[in-house]
Design a protein around this nucleic acid. Structure first.
Lengths: 144, 144
DNA sequence: GTAATTGCAAATTATTTGCATTGCC
DNA sequence: GGCAATGCAAATAATTTGCAATTAC
C-alpha cells in the first residue's frame, strides 16, 4: 500500500468515515497517472477497473481527498477542474502553454518567501496560494 | 465619457461591432462598483437601470470586455467568476481572507520579476499570470 | 447493528446558444 | 438596409443532492 493510501485511511478513521473499495480504486487510479486529470477523465479510467462505480462517487471522493490534503485541485484556464496527487510532494506551481496546454511544474524559493512577507505586511496569516504562469512554450512560440 | 468607454468603443469599431445602450450600461455599472462582481451580481445592478436587459447580454458583454482587455475575470476559490475593471490600472494580484472573503490588492516587483525569469528559464514567453494568496486577515485570525 | 457509502437519477448552478425581433452605423 | 445585438427560453456542462439499497467497521 502506498503512503497516500495509508494517509487516506488514517484521515478517514479520524473522521469516523470508512475506507471502501471504490475510494481505494479512485485514489489508486489518480496516482498512477501523472497527468492532471479532470473528474470526468478520472471517472473514465476508474470505470475500466470497476464499471459499477458512479460519477458521483468520484466527485465525492475527490472532495474528501482534497480535504485530507492528498490531492490538489488545479485551475488551468479552460473551465475544467483538474486534480493532482500532492501527498508527500513539495508544493509547486504551474507554467502552462496557452497554445498546446503543456504544463511544467515550477517552484521558486524567492517567490515563496515574498508571498509570506506580503501576507505578513498586511497582517494576514498565509494558508495557501495559487500561482499560474501562462505563456507560450518554445515549440509553440515559433508557430504563432 | 470615461477612458474605458472610449477604449471599448474603439475596440468595437475595430471589430465591426456596435456600441449599444446595454453595453454602455453594463460597463458603466461595473466601473462604478469597486467590489468585484459576479455576472449575476452585475446583472442585478444593471437591471435597476434598465430592467429589460437580459442576463445573456451581461455574459456576452463581459466576454467582449475581457477580449478588449478592459475587464479581468478573477477566480477566488468559491466557484463563481468575478470581474474587475482593469483598464488603465496597474496589474495586481489578490490576497484573500478565507474566513470573511475580504480581499486586498497586492503588487510586488520582486515576484513579477522572478515570474519572468522562471518562464524564461524554461524557454517560455510569459503572457500573463494569476496569483492568489489565501489566508486569514487580522480580524478573522483571532476568531478561529 | 448501525451509521456511512453507494449508484442512480433528478436537481442545481453557471454559462451558452438558437432564434425571431430590434436597432446601430 | 443590412448585419450585429438583444431578450427570451431552451440547451449545455459541471457538479451536487435525495434516496433507497448496500456495506464497512
Amino acid at each position: 500500500m502506498t503512503n497516500s493510501q495509508e494517509a487516506f485511511s488514517r484521515y478517514l478513521a479520524e473522521k469516523n468515515l470508512k475506507m471502501t473499495p471504490q475510494r481505494r480504486v479512485i485514489l489508486d487510479t489518480l496516482q498512477k497517472q501523472d497527468e492532471h486529470l479532470s473528474s470526468e477523465e478520472l471517472y473514465a479510467l476508474v470505470k475500466r477497473h470497476d464499471p459499477s462505480i458512479g460519477q458521483a462517487t468520484v466527485y465525492r471522493t475527490l472532495k474528501l481527498l482534497n480535504e485530507a490534503g492528498i490531492v490538489e485541485p488545479l485551475d488551468f484556464a479552460d473551465g475544467v477542474t483538474r486534480y493532482e496527487s500532492s501527498y508527500g510532494r513539495e508544493h509547486h506551481d504551474h507554467l502552462i502553454c496557452e497554445a498546446c496546454g503543456r504544463n511544467i511544474e515550477i517552484m521558486d524559493e524567492v517567490i515563496e518567501r515574498r508571498q509570506e512577507e506580503l501576507a505578513e505586511e498586511h497582517g494576514f496569516t498565509l494558508l495557501r496560494h495559487k500561482m499560474y504562469l501562462y505563456g507560450l512554450c518554445p515549440d509553440c512560440r515559433g508557430k504563432k
